[in-house]
Structures are given as structure tokens and as C-alpha cells.
Design a binder for these strands. Structure first.
Length: 294
DNA sequence: CGCCAGGTTAGAG
DNA sequence: CTCTAACATGGC
């Protein structure tokens, strides 16, 4: 078996996801070629290189390129893709809410079918969030690129190299001297290594967090140095796709609310919370479309 | 040059 | 509990 398909909900538009996936030329963790996305992941320590194409807007065609896979690997890969594009969620209730919001309504219409672009790897979510703290996205991508090139596993296939995000074991074994040349600050270097150690020691794992209710999951994540409210919520949004997670204080959200409320200053926390009230239970999706707004 | 960027921590008041 | 400096550097 080297290909299979996944049926799509009506409220899904692959084009919007492609646009998002193509947003940085420095991205090494997937490769977009026209309307196809290539990605390398590990399933039970096996490197699986696959590509995704959308057929007739009704299903995704998944083709595994580097080997034949068995039923259980196929099932893991399918699960991965459902998480990556948040396909197992019925987002119609959110659209019903957003239709009543005159600011978000046009954004919803323009990006109809855009879902959370998940990050199934929790370690990657947390480290990426830490890298992105307080710096612009472009520089954040440069740092991630260097980290992935320096410590990520890779597979060469038809003259091209495909990368995976570094494993916690690898980052737990590096020192400041390895990360500072990548232009990590001392603080970020410490955070990244600390997060890796938390995974290696078993203090934290995706399975462990997965079984917890939202608030307990948040508390577990915040125990790690470098992971505050913003980062924890970001991970809960991207990795676990909790529909009610959202990074309060986020600069993108603040800018969107500033525009909506027509302010000449940054909105206060209360103003942001007040705006989000109407999206109770769907804060993650409101966030997603607010980010699209600007 | 100055200010802000997908924040967090430790320390002071 | 709230406020602030420090963190490091790119982009505009």
C-alpha cells in the first residue's frame, strides 16, 4: 500500500492551508510544490515521507514516497493528518457565531474552510513558541531553520533533503555553546534545553497532557521554565486543538482588537476578554481568524 | 536612530 | 498583587 485518501468535511479549503504552509521560504519541516505538500515524519521510529494533494475538494490523497507501509502505520499517518488540519472537528457552530459578528463575518467569508493548522508534535510547539517570543516572525524562522539543520533528523530522497524537528533527546544533550551561535539568546537557549529535559525525564509528554482537562493541562505546561500563559495556550491550541485555548496578550490578537474597536492604543486585557466572550468555547477559532484579519 | 516584535522570568515595591 | 528591567536582535 502506498496511497490512500481521507474524505473532507464541506467546511474545509485546502488552498487556505497551502497559503499558510507557504508563508516562509525558510520552512524546512514541509515542502510545498505547487498544489502538493511533502512532509517527513517519524512513526514508531520509522521515517515516513509522504505527499498530500487535494482531489475534487472532497478528499485528500496521501501518497507515501519512500516505502511501503502496513495497516497500523497507515492508521497512524491518517491520525496525524487529521490532527494537522483539524479535520475531525465540526466547526459549523463557530461559523454560526461568527456570522453575527460584523467584523469577523467578512474574514470568515474570505477564508471559509480554513482550520487550525495543528502541530502534532508538542515539543516542536513549545520550542517554536519560545523561539518566537518577543521577536519578529522572520527572525524566528531563521532561528528555527538553524536549529532544524543543526540537530534535526533528515532523509534524502531523489536528490532532496527532507527534515524533521529535532527530538527532545537531541536538544537535551546540547549546551549553550551549541545554541548561542544560532543566535539564540542565553535565555532562549536555557528554555529550549529545559523543555527538552522535561520531555526526556518524563515530566511532560503529549500523552500525559492529552488526558487532562484544559485547566490542568495549562498548569502542567506552565511549570516548565520559559512556558508562560501565552506559550501554554499556544501549544494547547496548536497541538491539542482545544477549541477554547487562546493566547491572551498576543500581539496579533491585540492588533486585531485595536482595529475592531477603532482604538489608538493597545486594547486592555479586559477589552480583549470582553470581545472574546461571544466566542466562548470557540476562542481558538476566533483567534485563528483574527490573525487572518491582519 | 528608535521602536516594536506571535513573552517570560526574577526581583522590587 | 502589580510593575519593571533584562533578555538579543531583526525589520521597518
Amino acid at each position: 500500500m502506498n496511497s490512500f485518501s481521507i474524505p473532507l468535511p464541506k467546511e474545509f479549503n485546502f488552498e487556505h492551508h497551502l497559503t499558510h504552509l507557504k508563508r516562509s521560504p525558510k520552512e524546512l519541516l514541509h515542502t510545498c510544490v505547487e498544489d502538493e505538500v511533502f512532509k517527513l515524519i517519524a512513526i514508531n521510529d520509522n521515517k515516513i515521507l509522504f505527499k498530500i494533494k487535494c482531489i475534487d475538494k472532497s478528499h485528500l490523497l496521501i501518497t507515501i514516497l519512500n516505502k511501503k507501509i502496513n495497516e497500523s502505520t497507515k492508521s497512524e499517518l491518517e491520525k496525524y493528518i487529521l490532527e494537522w488540519f483539524d479535520l475531525d472537528k465540526d466547526i459549523r457552530p463557530f461559523y454560526t457565531l461568527a456570522a453575527k459578528d460584523k467584523f469577523l463575518k467578512p474574514v470568515i467569508q474570505k477564508f471559509y474552510g480554513y482550520r487550525i493548522v495543528g502541530q502534532p508534535d508538542l515539543f516542536e510547539s513549545l520550542v517554536w513558541a519560545v523561539i518566537g517570543q518577543q521577536i519578529n516572525l522572520s527572525f524566528a524562522y531563521t532561528m528555527k531553520q538553524r536549529l532544524v539543520e543543526g540537530f534535526g533528523e533528515r532523509l534524502e530522497f531523489k536528490e532532496k533533503i527532507y527534515y524533521m524537528f529535532p527530538k527532545p533527546e537531541r536538544i537535551a544533550s546540547v549546551t549553550h555553546d551549541d545554541l548561542l551561535p544560532l543566535q539564540f539568546s542565553r535565555q532562549k537557549s536555557k528554555y529550549a534545553i529545559g523543555i527538552a529535559e522535561a520531555f526526556v525525564s518524563g515530566q511532560i509528554s503529549k500523552d500525559k497532557i492529552n488526558d487532562l482537562p484544559w485547566d490542568e493541562a495549562l498548569n502542567e505546561l506552565i511549570k516548565i521554565k520559559g512556558v508562560g500563559q501565552w506559550t501554554a495556550n499556544y501549544a494547547l491550541l496548536r497541538t491539542f486543538r482545544y477549541p477554547n485555548a487562546f493566547p491572551l496578550g498576543d500581539a496579533g490578537i491585540n492588533n486585531a482588537i485595536k482595529k475592531i474597536l477603532n482604538l489608538d492604543r493597545r486594547p486592555t486585557t479586559e477589552e480583549v476578554i470582553k470581545y472574546f466572550k461571544k466566542y466562548k468555547g470557540w476562542e481558538a477559532y476566533a483567534t485563528l481568524y483574527l490573525w487572518k484579519m491582519i
